[in-house]
Simulated scan of single mutants.
Amino acid sequence: MTRWSPQPAPDEPDGLILFDGVCVFCSRWVRWVITHDRERRFRFLPIQSEAGRALAVRYGIDPEAPQTNAVVLGGRIFFKSDAALTVLGALPKTRALKALKATPRLLRDPLYDLIAKNRYAVFGRTDACVVPSPEDRERFLA
């Protein structure tokens, strides 16, 4: 088991996505999930919030330099490519992508790491976290 292997998280809210709120790429990912999550299953927590920082620290993510997003689903917390594929696998239009989890993380996570390492340089960074629309505000926990 590696540092970023899925872990039990029975006390965390189901459907919670922890994300880097100042990362433009990450904020676009959140908007994409909101658009495709017709059941409104997922909720969002920026790592820059007090609750986001606490969750990050609890699971070994450095809140000052996050190397991963995370998602809680089914009482487990997933990181890196597992997190993205878990979310995609839970949404109707992208459910088939869940099959990519059969590929070993050893092969998937280097691509994830490359994007994560360069996300600010390629996609940009904002000074503030994403501001949700009024109809989606309750889906953001901070």
Rank of each mutant, 00 (worst) to 15 (best):
F123W: 08
V24D: 02
A102Q: 12
I77N: 04
P13E: 11
A54D: 08
F19R: 10
F19K: 08
R53I: 12
R28L: 06
A116H: 09
A102F: 08
W32P: 08
A128S: 14
E50W: 06
E50Q: 11
L106T: 15
V131D: 12
V57L: 04
P10K: 14
D37A: 00
A84H: 03
A9F: 11
L88P: 01
A65C: 08
D127F: 08
D113E: 14
T103G: 02
A65Q: 14
F25E: 14
G89E: 02
P110H: 08
G21R: 13
R108T: 08
P6E: 11
P8T: 15
S133G: 10
K93Q: 09
Q48D: 07
A142F: 14
D37H: 01
D20S: 06
L85F: 05
G60V: 15
R137D: 12
V33F: 01
C23R: 13
I34W: 00
Q7W: 03
A121S: 10
L16G: 05
P8V: 15
R43I: 11
K98C: 03
E135C: 05
A142I: 14
L18M: 15
R125S: 04
V72E: 00
V24Y: 00
R43S: 10
L141R: 12
L73W: 05
E50C: 01
D62A: 00
P104T: 05
V72L: 00
G15R: 08
I47K: 03
D14N: 12
D37R: 03
P66E: 03
L91S: 02
R119S: 05
P66K: 06
A99I: 15
A56H: 07
C129F: 04
P134D: 12
F78M: 02
R40A: 05
R58D: 04
P10V: 15
L141E: 13
P104E: 04
D136Q: 13
E12V: 09
A99W: 13
G15Y: 03
I17N: 01
G15E: 08
S81W: 06
R95K: 07
R108C: 01
I17V: 04
A96T: 15
A70H: 07
C26Y: 11
S49G: 01
P6K: 06
P66R: 04
V122C: 03
V72S: 00
G52R: 11
H36G: 01
L85C: 05
A65D: 15
V71S: 01
R119D: 06
D20H: 09
W29E: 10
A96L: 11
